[in-house]
Design a protein around this nucleic acid. Structure first.
Lengths: 231, 231, 231, 231
DNA sequence: TATGAATGAGCATTCATTCAT
DNA sequence: CATGAATGAATGCTCATTCAT
């Protein structure tokens, strides 16, 4: 790749990063091209040489972070069920609760009404793809007779809803009070336990294993009272 | 109250309703004072006599809809557990999935970064208050030895996450593809069943009762394959 | 008409006049809305409350001067032929050679390529309508056996071409050297004479009458050498 | 001339041609330096190395096309009068009604107010020079006692006005409805006839000869009803 | 010499807000 | 108290012009 082209790509990335920051901080309308240009350390006309307009920049910007979220999880499916769910849950949580991803999510939700394609595109390329991985995982575990259910999609959705819906909702509504990792752990660990209790073929065994993992994970001590159904 | 004051209050309400519509449809920035004035059938200067500015109108507007959502549920706690959960779930679902509430939610989430009080206020006055009711309910059921858990808040959150997180997330991101009642039913009914399986002291009995309720509810036929852990 | 409406109409006229000045002086692109607003003694947003945009203002402006040009001539067709042609010619010349109409014509011609409707509209509503009057006049004179020809439209065009094409062309190309009334008279008087010579049934009589009119007209002395075919 | 200099000159010509196209198509303001550079197949900075700015390029461009129009007519003055007028008229018409010359004329007229030298220069170098040829021709014919008049300039202008003012005016105002050759022929042939009728010493003879020429010219059939004063 | 990249200045348009009536 | 009219301050976008290479 030529020096020129490299430089151009690098600047394009700089613009996209600046755009993410500015859009996320101000919302679509309040994010002015001037602000973005300034944040990217260049002038407006230069900005316009890289992207033909605000909408284009916005949509282009939304395609950047997806990748990082995509390969969130590919595990060794022979490991203990609790271990895999634990890893999966944290991989997801650590992505989804990152401040920049939360900002982006707020932005997309806020503009979904007027940019319907964007919301759909994001949903399809982000959460939906992750869900597919989760569904595949669920089916594999059912095949291995570790989980029991009829509808793998519902199983996957239930897992998600149990571990992350509460902290994520709070985070979406209260940017200043995004739950810290300890607070998230409370929901995540509880969610895994409840999921195992409802879905596992051998809940007691898996929950015991989970408890060990949690103790390990909480070496740095959370005050959480432990997952809910201690059975 | 004098005639004058009454008139004033009524007009204020009209403004707030118009503001809700316009803000929800266009977003904060794209909602112009002109549009709001027109929607309220008055002129801009009059608008400014009722509210000192756009921000003030916005925040004032957000305090209106709370009430409707509040008294969402007050049930007879002696009825069968499955019946109560079923009613609770649908009361919640029917509120939360209404297009206007979804619009409002998108609006608040979208502006949460720049109006942090708003997000918090909404969270506290809306979802949190509902959650309180749910927590109280959970504790009552635990007292009656129908449910078993340590942390009632987690139980409540789990219930919410199981029945509504999936369709609501989709609805937030895709305004054009808000799940219809049948689609919501799939999640809600499954969620209740999974919840009972994980939390009920006598899951089999409650789930059987739930199945009857669902059959009744689905008199008008949903294609849903039934809740997940049919056990 | 209410005071308000009257005021509004008057301001609208003020804007249109300012627009004519500014557009004519600078051309379409170089005429900024700021300049027009300033010339009309108001601010840009006010301007936009009267006209929705630059294009609209431009086209609206083009509909104003037409009227003045329309009823340019309605004469007593029983008067001597030379008298009527003389009056007609000067009515036309005095309109068409006015600096503001010349500016407008330059403007329209200059923008005709990108605003094709405008050029057509102007042609139809201005020159073409005048031509219709001239054609009717020619036919009347043919009926009275004072003129002789087959095609009245060609007769009308010939008249126009003879009296005004030369000074008007010069004026269009050289705004700083617009022929003065004396210079125009040279072409107009010559043109009438040549026209009579080619078209009149009794040229000698009509041209003699014309010579008298010219002498009268030139009481204030032009240096013009008289019309061409003194015969 | 060195290879270098030759190359430079050739590129300069390419730029000027591109400029003519772009200016004529878009008008002065809407013709961007980018467009011109692209049309000339080079980059903007190179453009600026040949011409110091837009204005300079514009004025330079206007000095190019003159020559083509110059040598429009040099005839054998001993041929029949009608033949010579016919040839002259068509040579002029075919030049003046060419789409590119019309575009250029519109451009110059449109910018005449802000570039006064341009209009004058064009007038002097284009039409005026042609007029000089025409005047000389008229004088020669007067010397040969074929035409009769006092003022040769007026005679020349009358000829021009009779044959071309109508179609050219229409063409200037309506780029989308430029008269085709048949439509122009109607005016041209009529104009020559009228001119002969007013100016020729032996009109009948010349008009008869003209009629033959027209029949020949219209081998491909025009629907025109013939020139006006068939006498 | 030629070019990819950059920029200062401007322009059409909009909006929250304020007067004069 | 209500309104038609007005405005200062942006905002997205463009363009003639200039560097650095």
């Amino acid at each position: 790749m030529s020096r020129r082209a490299q430089n151009r790509l690098e600047k394009e990335r700089r613009i996209l990063e600046a755009a993410l920051r500015v859009f996320a901080d101000h919302g679509y309308r309040a994010a002015t091209m001037d602000l973005i240009a300034e944040a990217a350390n260049l002038t407006k006309p230069t900005l316009y040489q890289y992207f033909p307009g605000k909408d284009a920049l916005f949509t282009a910007m939304l395609n950047v972070p997806r990748e990082r979220m995509l390969d969130a999880f590919e595990g060794d499916t022979t490991r203990p069920l609790a271990d895999q769910l634990h890893d999966f849950a944290w991989a997801y949580a650590d992505t989804v609760m990152r401040p920049d991803f939360l900002s982006l999510a707020r932005l997309i939700i806020g503009e979904a009404q007027r940019f319907p394609e964007i919301g759909t595109a994001y949903q399809v390329s982000g959460p939906d793809r992750l869900l597919d991985g989760l569904i595949a995982f669920m089916e594999a575990q059912r095949g291995a007779e570790r989980l029991r259910f009829d509808d793998p999609e519902l199983a996957a959705q239930d897992f998600w809803g149990l571990i992350l819906s509460a902290p994520r909702n709070k985070a979406l509504y209260e940017p200043d009070a995004v739950p810290d990792r300890a607070a998230v752990a409370r929901y995540v660990h509880n969610g895994i336990a409840v999921f195992l209790r409802a879905y596992a073929t051998d809940p007691q065994h898996d929950i015991a294993r989970l408890a060990a993992l949690i103790k390990q994970h909480d070496a740095s001590a959370t005050a959480s009272a432990g997952p809910n159904p201690i059975a």
